[in-house]
């Protein structure tokens, strides 16, 4: 029930309350936002369970937390804490370069990142309940989220209009489970909600992702690394609700102060990219 909403990264209870007050539909509890993980380097792991619990106590909206790709023991800990969703996230340092978590083994719903439809369907095949574009977290640069969302929507349209006898070849090409390809063919949409993340820094960025087909957006560093987090948080929430209304967008975009510090994705070295983690 997160659709049409904004999920915000928060690092403490106070930020969680600011996010809830601004109208966030959920918060992502983590120790460092992606921009800081990028700057500080080192291994990024699941957050301290005490800090996650403090955030769960601070707000009534759902709380998500991240585990490393393939780190099912971290996922078990998060489930035991009672978090509402687990994000198996490329923002943390991967624990397994071959296998993602078998999400069917959990009751807690998972959200996973994807760069294209094949990757999205592989994660759904493993039990993901939601998909988000990976984008390139911590950059404040929307270009990768746009690339990933366009890639996913383009392949959905292609499969939806393809004749039935081509679906197996498409499944082979995408390296995706055949049954899920058939489902996309029949429904013309992803089998689970399709969200966007990775680089959203302004209300206009959020509106752009909604136009491109996102059903909700994640904002990581974009809020609490900006100069006026309260106003920006509120403006991004408004932008997701009113994304089709340019007059509203113009009004809420005025005088928001400085956006988060940003990075040119093309100048990042291969090993600095987060989106290429996982497959």
């Amino acid at each position: 029930m997160l659709r049409g909403g904004v999920i915000m990264d928060v690092v403490n209870a106070e930020q969680a309350r600011i996010a809830e007050e601004a109208g966030a539909v959920a918060v992502m509890a983590l120790e460092r936002v992606p921009a800081d993980i990028r700057r500080e380097g080192g291994v990024a792991r699941m957050s301290d369970p005490r800090m996650i619990e403090e955030i769960m106590h601070a707000v009534t909206i759902p709380v998500m937390a991240k585990c490393r790709i393939g780190h099912f023991a971290e996922a078990m800990i998060l489930e035991a804490l009672g978090v509402d969703f687990i994000d198996e996230s490329e923002v943390l340092t991967p624990a397994d370069e071959e296998h993602h978590v078998n999400k069917h083994a959990f009751k807690t719903p998972f959200v996973c990142g994807a760069r294209d439809l094949g990757e999205a369907l592989r994660r759904i095949g493993e039990g993901a309940a939601m998909i988000r574009t990976k984008g390139e977290a911590g950059t404040g640069n929307i270009v990768e989220a746009v690339r990933h969302m366009r890639a996913i929507m383009k392949d959905i349209r292609r499969i939806h209009s393809a004749p039935e006898d081509e679906l197996m070849a498409i499944a082979k090409q995408l390296q995706a489970p055949y049954d899920l390809v058939v489902e996309v063919h029949q429904t013309g949409r992803l089998p689970v909600p399709n969200f966007s993340a990775g680089g959203i820094a302004t209300p206009a960025d959020a509106a752009l992702m909604m136009w491109l087909g996102a059903e909700a957006v994640f904002v990581g560093s974009g809020i609490f690394k900006a100069s006026d987090p309260e106003r920006r948080a509120r403006a991004i929430v408004d932008a997701v609700t009113h994304y089709r209304d340019p007059e509203v967008l113009a009004e809420i975009s005025k005088g928001l102060g400085e956006a988060m510090p940003s990075l040119d994705v093309r100048k990042l070295a291969e090993e600095e990219l987060m989106a290429v983690r996982g497959w």
């Binding site: 997160l2 659709r3 909403g5 966030a24 539909v25 959920a26 909206i61």
Partner: peptide, 8 residues
Amino acid sequence: GESTTIGK
């Protein structure tokens, strides 16, 4: 949806 969000 989220009642807190919708209410606000």
